[in-house]
């Protein structure tokens, strides 16, 4: 089974879902990745952890609404043709 563009799209959707499902209070704060934790001081370049937290927060904020639409389209398509 080759890794095709379709599987890439599927994988991307699943990964974005996985990031969006992380819960701020229940999970991220417990492992120390909360919004108010680990932010560097002013003028200090953010480290890898800071960048990763920033990315997760951005994905969770931006992708919430589009994900609902994309996921429901995918579900309908898979129900019909899958």
């Amino acid at each position: 089974m080759a890794f095709t563009l379709y599987s890439l799209l599927q994988a991307a959707l699943l990964v974005v879902n996985a990031i969006a499902v992380l819960h701020e209070d229940r999970f991220l704060r417990n492992v120390g990745w909360g919004t108010d934790q680990g932010i560097g001081g002013f003028g200090e370049e953010p480290g890898i952890k800071g960048q990763l937290m920033n990315l997760i927060r951005s994905v969770r904020t931006v992708m919430r609404v589009p994900l609902i639409a994309v996921n429901s389209i995918t579900i309908v398509l898979l129900l019909l043709f899958g």
Binding site: F3, T4, L5, S7
Partner: peptide, 11 residues
């Protein structure tokens, strides 16, 4: 299939 696979890996 080859083109799709190679393109996917490139992306």
């Amino acid at each position: 299939l080859q083109a799709s696979s190679a393109l996917a890996w490139l992306i």
